[in-house]
């Protein structure tokens, strides 16, 4: 080995060995575990774990709780992501106004929820959603809306978590959208203006198509992030009422670390992996087809 190659490997050694031992190895072990009945007895004596093939996955398909968690998570993603992206884009467009003063102050305010601790924010919102003393019902009451039992009603619990998530996250994508908006050349708008296109036509025919790559990127990272939601239901509802906010990761956590059914829990983790993988493939595909 020449000295330069040896130096390179020395530089890489800490990172590569940490990633191999504490990331790649666990991924492989998790897959093997998902093919066993690893449970609390195996925890004490690993020889108690038996190979069961795809049994865990088969059982998942017949587990009403798993389907419930998958449905809830999909609901969270399908409603939450478009809402979140629309809010981000709206805020970005407002803030991108050239004549606006105090721009950085507004941006800072909108960004505050992003950097704060999710658990602390979830705690605060639990009280904001209080049916009698909470701010939410108080404000809605000013508009004549009857009190809603946000976290106690299976119909409203998920919308409550979605509102929290949108409030918490929109500032992040807003920043990316602002960068995207600023990269659209002014000449396009000027030309459209000369051709007599109104504001709405400019938005539809220039802004939207020019932002398409940004939107795709933002959409994918948001979908992947939302599929992993956990802390909100853990802190605010424990997955209830009636499992209406049980998420995939919360179910994985409960199966694995509360009931120690670690084989079964691993199979849930791999379903999550599969979902994220498929979404990423779709992104790559769409990106490729755009280039051509």
């Amino acid at each position: 080995m020449n000295p330069s190659t040896r130096a390179a490997w020395l530089f890489l050694a800490p990172a590569l060995s940490a990633i191999t031992v504490f990331f790649f190895l666990p991924v492989i072990v998790a897959f093997v575990m998902s093919l066993t009945d690893f449970d609390i007895y195996s925890l004490a004596d690993i020889s108690k774990a038996r190979f069961v093939g795809v049994n865990n996955y088969w059982n998942l398909l017949h587990d009403a709780l798993f389907w419930k968690a998958l449905r809830n998570t999909t609901y969270f993603v399908v409603v939450g992501v478009p809402l979140s992206i629309a809010t981000s884009l709206g805020a970005a467009i407002l803030l991108n106004n050239r004549f606006l003063k105090f721009k950085s102050l507004f941006r800072l305010a909108y960004f505050t929820p992003v950097v704060t601790t999710l658990v602390a924010v979830a705690v605060v919102w639990r009280y904001i959603y209080h049916p009698r003393f909470g701010l939410m019902n108080y404000w809605l009451g000013l508009f004549g809306v009857n009190p809603i039992d946000w976290l106690g009603d299976p119909v409203w619990a998920m919308p409550a978590l979605i509102i929290l998530a949108v409030w918490k996250n929109f500032g992040y994508n807003m920043i990316i959208f602002i960068a995207g908006l600023q990269s659209i050349p002014d000449e396009l708008y000027e030309a459209a203006h000369i051709d007599g296109a109104g504001k709405w036509q400019q938005f539809r025919n220039i802004t939207i198509p020019m932002l398409a790559p940004t939107t795709l990127f933002v959409g994918i990272i948001t979908v992947i992030g939302y599929f992993q939601f956990f802390a909100e239901p853990y802190v605010m509802t424990q997955g209830g009422p009636l499992n209406s906010t049980l998420s995939i990761v919360l179910l994985m956590y409960q199966e694995g670390f509360r009931w120690w059914r670690m084989g079964y829990s691993s199979s849930i983790a791999f379903v999550l992996f599969f979902i994220v993988f498929v979404i990423t493939l779709i992104q790559l595909k769409v990106q490729k087809s755009r280039v051509v």
Binding site: F22, F23, L25, P26, V27, V29, A30, M33, I224, Q228, V249, M252, G256, M262, S265, S266, A269, F270, L272, F273, V276
Partner: peptide, 9 residues
């Protein structure tokens, strides 16, 4: 690969 996959092992 989502980090949750590695957590049990």
């Amino acid at each position: 690969i989502p980090g949750q996959v590695t957590m049990l092992p």
